[in-house]
Design a protein around this nucleic acid. Structure first.
Length: 490
RNA sequence: GGGGGCGUAGCUCAACGGCAGAGCAAGGGCCUUUUAAGCCCGUGGUUCAGGGUUCGAAUCCCUGCGCCCUCACCA
């Protein structure tokens, strides 16, 4: 639906019910109701204490079964549903009669005793009830639920009410993030918060959102990564540090991309990328175990085991196997572009060697990955912030973790040689000048910090939305983000 | 941005060149253990918006808006 005027109109029948309540002296929006019981807890406690008094509250969902002088309905609260049963001879004619003004969507508080109905459902038989909030708009249809994707996303609250499995996904997402945080804190990591508004949007390769700060009369950018500030923390002596926060990238929407997304970055002094690999696989398996009860997850038809250790595969071997292209046999962009084109990659003129390698990876390798795997030995030109392997200066101490057809983590032994970092930044600046829009900016303040000395450090970034997709079995990133980006309504 | 599909009642969907419909929701009536309650009766429409073709358009054509799929882009 795109017609705002249509939605602005309130159903007159609902307004009439509201007036009916007010005319009877009922406040349709009272400030409080003393709830003592959650819907989901009423049924399991019935057998040990049948007939006990309870006070439940929630939204009226589903159909109201009005049968003359008896009425049944279900209340939905944050824990689940419970049936309530109203009889005229218990409530009295006036209170019972006011149920006429109650509709699906309204919030009710019910005071009563638990009973088991003829069909076996534990139910609260009302002694009294209170209107807690009158709803002025109808809920989506109860049987088919809410199907229209646009409505589900634009008015997610209706989706949450109509489709209980959606609420389950977000409960699980919360649990996953909690377990990630717990895992890191248990291992001595300190959680910090670093600036979202940055003068130099570094730490990754992406186009930033730009904004303007009036008081200082300067352009600022929303961060695209957490990296450079967390390294400042390491330099400052916080030896294990992490941040769970939102990054912003001014790029396209896809099944796996939203312009704002949640990132975990964790840095550990005196660790290298091998230590971080062990940390990463243990983190994912532990979070799955604690949030789902098992390190085994379901991906479509398949079951995938996240338990460590995950295989370590050189990137060159993975691409060779996936595409028959051996990029180490192609030392320059021209020869690699030819080989990639022969393998079926649709190349574009001007792509760098690094770009070609990345395209080979994402086209021929990434989509086929099911079980978790680490790719290692990344070419230095793809990794301006990573340390070189001492025995092989053409590759860096870096890995990316893949699972279920997605990249879920990226990590390296952090480059802590300030002079080399300066040279790498200058190379990025050169690439930017040559038209590479993803090349990273020169960050003089970060370099100055690095010049004060950073201990050997391993660092890792993990896409939390993608981790949530993996562990909740969702195919689309927007299904694990409550309010994903959509085009605006006129 | 390219290609394809879709947009009809509050919701889920029909009608596909010839009177815009059903189920649910909402309204009225009956019903004191229902749970997709049931039975009876009514109500509800700028067919996304604008233009065109036609005797006649929800239907065909064009433009715009939005959503979905897909490709591109996005490590």
């Amino acid at each position: 639906m795109t017609d705002n005027a249509e939605h602005a109109r309130l159903p007159e029948e609902r307004l009439a019910k509201l007036e009916q309540l007010r005319a009877a002296g009922v406040d349709p929006y009272p400030a409080r109701f003393a709830r003592t019981d959650l819907a989901a807890e009423v049924t399991p406690t019935f057998d040990t204490a049948p007939g006990r008094p309870v006070r439940v509250a929630g939204r009226v969902v589903g159909g109201i079964r009005r049968m003359g002088r008896a009425t049944f309905l279900h209340l939905l609260d944050g824990s689940g549903q419970i049936q309530a049963y109203f009889k005229q001879d218990v409530l009295g004619e006036q209170a019972y009669g006011l149920l006429d003004a109650i509709e699906a969507g309204d919030f009710l508080g019910v005071v009563g005793n638990t009973i088991r109905t003829r069909t076996g459902e534990v139910t609260v038989q009302a002694v009294e009830y209170a209107v807690l909030a009158k709803s002025l708009r109808p809920l989506p249809e109860k049987w088919h639920g809410l199907q229209d994707v646009e409505t589900r996303l634009r008015r997610r609250y209706l989706d949450l009410i109509a489709n209980p499995e959606v609420a389950d996904v977000f409960r699980l997402r919360s649990r996953i993030i909690h377990e990630v945080r717990t895992f890191l804190v248990e291992r001595g990591f300190l959680e910090v918060e670093t600036p979202v508004l940055q003068a130099v949007p570094g730490g990754g390769a992406a186009r930033p959102f730009e904004t303007y700060y009036n008081a200082l009369d300067r352009t600022l950018y929303l961060r695209i990564a957490l990296e450079l500030y967390l390294k400042r923390c390491i330099i400052g002596g916080i030896e294990r540090v992490f941040e769970l926060g939102r990054n912003f990238r001014n790029e396209g929407l896809s099944l796996k991309h939203n312009p704002e997304f949640t990132m975990l970055e964790a840095y550990q002094a005196y660790a290298d990328y091998r230590d971080i690999m062990a940390l990463t696989e243990e983190l994912v398996a532990t979070v799955a175990e604690r949030a789902l009860g098992s390190p085994r997850i379901t991906l479509g038809e398949e079951e995938v085991d996240l338990s460590p250790p995950w295989p370590r595969v050189p990137l060159r071997d993975a691409i060779l196997q996936g595409s028959s292209v051996d990029y180490e046999a192609c030392p320059d962009a021209e020869s690699l572009a030819r080989a990639a084109a022969e393998a079926g990659l649709r190349t574009q003129p001007g792509w760098s060697r690094g770009k070609l390698i990345d395209e080979l990876l994402s086209t021929f390798v990434e989509p086929k990955i099911r079980e978790p795997v680490f790719f290692v030995d990344y070419p230095v030109e793809l990794s301006p912030l990573a340390k070189r392997r001492p025995d092989r200066p053409d590759v860096v101490e870096r890995f990316e973790a893949f699972c279920g057809g997605m990249e879920i983590a990226n990590a390296f032994s952090e480059l802590n040689d300030p002079l080399e970092q300066r040279a790498r930044f200058l190379e990025q600046v050169r690439l930017k000048g040559a038209g590479d829009e993803e090349a990273q900016p020169f960050d003089a303040e970060f370099l100055e910090a690095l010049e004060h000395g950073m201990p050997p450090t391993g660092g890792m970034g993990m896409g939390i939305d993608r981790l949530a997709m993996l562990l909740t079995g969702q195919r689309r990133i927007r299904d694990v983000i409550l309010f994903p980006q959509l085009r605006s309504i006129e």
